[in-house]
């Protein structure tokens, strides 16, 4: 099942001041698959994901060491940090569209703010990306409205469209459905499954059954360590580590 490796993370360590938040993590994220990241609160899931697009280091006192090779190029050294974040998109727990921009402008915000695209190109990209997240039919008459006027689930898909508009190679999602209602969650899960036709997806989730439903591979973190990383089927049917088994069966965390 494993394709070639998209993102090769080697000996990744992260700290918040003195606190060692991530301990020597090694993971190979495959190309065009969905990797779920699970584990109890405070286990380092978010830190792990934020190390990949170098957002961890923005917190005062935080630092990271190790390598994260995107197609063989280290995001810590081989690339400009802005390029890293353009190639590795991110979607957050709380939908965060820009309230000062229209729906259409939100989708192409990244390109509009730093790129040199013409108005026509931007409009085309906006339409294409809204279609790929399944929002186009719902909101094509409301493109001029504020991004913040949509419902929560629509806002979250808008944020995904905004990340996709940068043509990323990997998209990171930090509990993207935890603020959404069940119907919106279902739509978003469908979208995640569809996305892997194009790019790699790393998705943090508190919902173990969501990990089972949508991911190809699952990583289980506990106290800053990567306890187990395997195909999702193996993790859920034959976990090697007793901690993993206890977590996925809901006995702690």
């Amino acid at each position: 099942m494993s394709n070639s490796t998209k993102l090769d993370i080697q000996n990744l360590n992260a700290w918040f001041c003195e606190k060692h938040a991530l301990k020597n993590v090694n993971v190979k994220i495959p190309d065009k698959e969905v990797v779920a990241v699970i584990g109890p609160s405070g286990c380092g899931k978010s830190t792990f994901v934020r190390c990949i697009n170098r957002m961890h280091e923005l917190i005062p006192g935080a630092k990271a060491s190790g390598k994260a090779l995107l197609d063989g190029v280290d995001v810590y050294g081989g690339m400009d940090v802005m390029d890293v974040r353009r190639k590795i998109g991110m979607v957050f727990q709380k939908p965060n569209p820009f309230p000062n921009m229209s729906v259409a402008d939100n989708v192409v915000a990244g390109l509009k703010l730093v790129g040199t695209h013409s108005k026509k190109e931007l409009a085309e990209i906006a339409e294409e990306r809204l279609k790929s997240v399944g929002l186009w039919e719902e909101i094509k008459d409301e493109l001029k409205k504020s991004g913040a006027s949509l419902s929560g689930g629509q806002q979250q898909r808008l944020c995904i469209a905004r990340a996709l508009a940068m043509n990323p190679e990997v998209i990171l999602m930090d509990e993207p459905t935890s603020a959404l209602d069940p119907a919106s969650t279902a739509k978003l899960e469908e979208l995640v499954k569809k996305l892997k036709n194009e790019i790699s997806v790393v998705i943090i989730t508190h919902n173990v059954s969501q990990a089972a439903r949508i991911s190809d591979m699952t990583a289980f973190f506990y106290l800053g360590e990567l306890v187990e990383f395997d195909e999702t089927r193996n993790i859920f049917e034959h976990p090697k580590n007793p901690l993993t088994e206890r977590y996925i069966t809901g006995r702690f965390g």
């Binding site: 802005m82 390029d83 890293v84 974040r85 965060n96 915000a109 990244g110």
Partner: peptide
């Protein structure tokens, strides 16, 4: 202005002065 908005811009690779 909520930090979520700043993070959204950071994650898009938008330089700080533009953000």
């Amino acid at each position: 202005v909520s930090n979520d908005i700043r993070e959204a811009a950071i994650a898009l690779g938008v330089p700080k002065w533009v953000r």
